[in-house]
Design a protein around this nucleic acid. Structure first.
Lengths: 148, 148
DNA sequence: GTTCCTGCAAAAGCTTTGCAGAAGA
DNA sequence: TCTTCTGCAAAGCTTTTGCAGGAAC
């Protein structure tokens, strides 16, 4: 589902974006990690390899990659932005209990309807929320009222 | 499409929530206004009628109405939350140029597919972004490159 | 009188901006 | 050398929290 890292490097080159170590690492991280990390998660993960890294650079880089069309913001979380490599169309599921965010495939053609209002649509997103399977299981083992 | 104000009052009573003037005004505003206002918009609009109103109260009230299941957060805007009365299922379109947010009906049954992952889904949202008709028109009249 | 509601002020958290120094071409 | 990138610090915004005074029952 994720594009591989080499493809991403090529995409950066095509757009004439300098392939700095920070940018490559952010892209590499996004292409490896499961789920959709927050800025903080990206920052903390890369700090091990790039001890001098600043959060500003992570923000700058994500903005750059977003403008270049390589990453997208996932707005399912109300508190902070999450980032996603641009890939095939898929939905996002977020567990309100453990914050897990998972992709799921959308039925083919599901969003291929037209608005009667003649607006030009450039971006389509589907967000589901609920309780993931493993949180449901742990609730059954303890207290079912513990959802909130 | 919007439930009327009396229905909302009844819903509050049913949930044993005190019908304070502030809460009623927030609900009334949400049931009248076109689009999905931000906290600030709600605050400024009600300030005329309730000069002592504080933003904290608007936040408190929206949280309360959200917990009561009467309003929902619309996360289409990356900068701030927007609020929506809970009504029939519909999608949201946001113009990235003028910030207009408009509801659109979803084809019947479009979201009635099941996730293979067995997560419990309690909330489903569809967000579209793009350029609205009138912004397209004004762009054609001036400079087509002016999209960003 | 007790509970709940409101609103000011302050704090918290995410994100952006300004600027100076470092790195790269 | 000149441009671009990085990172610290500070500022900007939205949202939350603490607490005291006020309203409602």
């Amino acid at each position: 589902m994720k594009p591989n890292f080499e493809q991403l490097k090529q995409a950066l080159k095509q757009r004439k974006i300098h392939l700095s170590i920070h940018r490559l690492k952010v892209l590499a991280y996004l292409s490896e990690v499961v789920g959709h990390p927050t800025v903080d998660e990206i920052y903390l993960a890369l700090l091990k390899e790039l001890p001098s890294l600043s959060k500003t650079t992570v923000y700058n880089t994500l903005q750059l990659l977003k403008d270049a069309g390589l990453v997208r913001v996932v707005n399912i979380d109300e508190n902070e932005a999450r980032y996603d490599l641009v890939t095939s169309v898929h939905g996002h599921f977020m567990c309100v209990h453990c914050q897990l965010i998972e992709d799921f495939p959308l039925p083919i053609g599901i969003l291929d309807f037209h608005l009667s209002s003649d607006h030009l649509v450039t971006e389509k997103k589907v967000y589901f929320k609920g309780i993931c399977k493993s949180c449901q299981a742990s609730m059954n083992n303890t207290n079912k009222e513990d959802i909130e």
